[in-house]
Nucleic acid binder design. Structure first.
Lengths: 137, 137
DNA sequence: TAACAAGATGCGAAAGCTTCTCACTCGTCC
DNA sequence: GGACGAGTGAGAAGCTTTCGCATCTTGTTA
């Protein structure tokens, strides 16, 4: 139940928070911008302000419910945090996003960070390219 | 000579372009934001508008003279393109940036992209962590 | 169930980075 | 040296994101 997740984050269960979480869940694994979420709410007939969307997404991020990604589009995108870390392949033509995980890369990153005296906290790996469909056109 | 690089990019050699290139070169391998470049120009006594700084940096990027990086700070940073690809370790406390290159990671990225039918164009790997100095405090 | 306090919301305003517009100026090439 | 096209500066505008504040809700206590 969504409510449990929201409560678990120490947040009150309110309509905006339920709706936003449900939109992110229903979106499958698409990566939605705050604007996308806002538009989805409007389409649903929910009258929720854009400022609230940003606030709630930030709270969800802090609570670990969602992940915020910074692709090079100038806006942040959000996705449900399914627990398993992964990185992204982004098509520069059609913006399609493919997720992947590679233990070998993760391991090397740890080694590199350690080698430079860094305690690793987080990382972001995005590969930009042209997907098969776009290349075929 | 800087002028050759600017001409080679099909751009006229103008004072703003010379000054900006020279600032980036003199900065060593620091990562400067457009604002940083602008301030450096002012300190030099050069009266060059911020809009011009952005324009020129974008042109230099298109010409391959500089690289633009998107760390998670909300602003882009620029560095001279020295030709050798590298990735970044960023300290989330003091913002220190360390560059590194890892052939193994590069190779895995190529394999992953190919496995998903992507023709790789570019990529961005940033590891965020706490550097030794900040951890010691 | 009613009332209350803390927390949430919505709206518009504002901030921060970046780009655009447009009149003016400057390189380049003849 | 002059003409033309490209480049510049200043401010306005655009975009994403955050803030401030009056109003409304949730969760709790009586």
């Amino acid at each position: 139940m969504d409510n449990q997740q929201i409560k678990g984050a120490g947040l009150k269960v309110t309509r905006p928070r339920e709706k936003i979480l449900s939109i992110l869940e229903r979106s499958g694994h698409r990566h939605l911008s705050a604007e996308d979420v806002y538009k989805a709410l409007l389409n649903n007939g929910d009258d929720i302000g854009l400022a609230t969307v940003y606030r709630v997404l930030t709270q969800f991020e802090e609570a670990g419910l969602v992940c915020r990604r910074h692709f090079e589009t100038g806006q942040s995108v959000f996705e449900i945090n399914s627990g398993d870390h992964h990185d992204h392949l982004v098509c520069i033509r059609c913006s399609r996003v493919v997720e992947f995980a590679d233990p070998l890369i993760e391991e090397r990153q740890g080694a590199i960070a350690a080698g430079h005296g860094f305690r690793i906290e987080n990382h972001s790996l995005v590969i930009y390219g042209v997907c098969a469909q776009c290349a075929a056109q």
